[in-house]
């Protein structure tokens, strides 16, 4: 597989949200606006790239029976580092995403990529895979966020283009499921062509 396709497959063929359908909890919960979706996607990408790199390095020496606990410790460490860094340097972002940052640990995309890719491939490929899948996740969350923000609050990235309220349901949980469902249909229809 070429290096370039390692990145692009995360965007299309193995898009984590619309094709693999992984990591639905943060997808549904944090995409109330485009900005939140984007920030959550970037936070996940950060952890994904680093954990993929480290896991691809240590995989050959980790005994098979304890590989899951070892991976979880590695992932949890990166998440905690990220959490502390965000708290220190981007307190505003931390305020909106605070609750969901620790949940990146249990995001199945990250452990999934560790299991399915990083422990069988080299460092370089694993890093690229992390970037690709991370970009795919970020892009998906941002698109869902944009759609929900337009319909729910009548705004894009915080810039309001209507006065008053949008359709409130789209900011809340039911809207998240609806938007995700329709985007998934659309995405798969377009991707098949």
């Amino acid at each position: 597989m070429s290096k370039f396709s390692l990145i692009t497959k995360g965007l299309l063929k193995e898009n984590p949200t619309f094709v693999l359908v992984l990591g639905m909890c943060p997808t549904l919960a944090t995409t109330t606006s485009a900005m939140n979706g984007l920030e959550m996607g970037l936070a996940t990408m950060f952890v994904l790239i680093l954990s993929n790199i480290v896991i691809s390095l240590i995989a050959p020496v980790v005994p098979d029976k304890v590989h899951i606990p070892v991976y979880i410790v590695v992932i949890a460490t990166f998440v905690t580092v990220l959490q502390l860094l965000m708290q220190a340097f981007t307190p505003d972002v931390y305020k909106t995403l605070g609750l969901f940052i620790p949940l990146i640990v249990v995001n199945c995309i990250i452990l999934g990529r560790a299991e399915a890719f990083a422990n069988k491939n080299g460092v370089w490929d694993s890093a690229l895979d992390g970037i690709g899948i991370g970009l795919g996740f970020t892009l998906s969350l941002t698109v869902i966020g944009i759609v929900r923000e337009i319909l729910g609050s009548g705004a894009v990235f915080g810039f309001k283009f209507i006065t008053g309220d949008g359709i409130l349901a789209f900011v809340m949980a039911p809207g998240a499921f609806l938007v995700l469902g329709y985007l998934m249909v659309l995405f798969n229809k377009l991707a098949k062509k």
């Binding site: 005994p63 905690t80 580092v81």
Partner: peptide, 26 residues
């Protein structure tokens, strides 16, 4: 791929990983 598991290398590996991670977090 992954090394063969024995009680010794499992314990060693987990301890080492946890120590390194704890240091990073600290």
């Amino acid at each position: 791929m992954a090394a063969k598991s024995s009680l010794r290398n499992m314990a060693l590996c987990l301890t080492a990983v946890c120590l390194v991670c704890a240091a990073v977090l600290g």
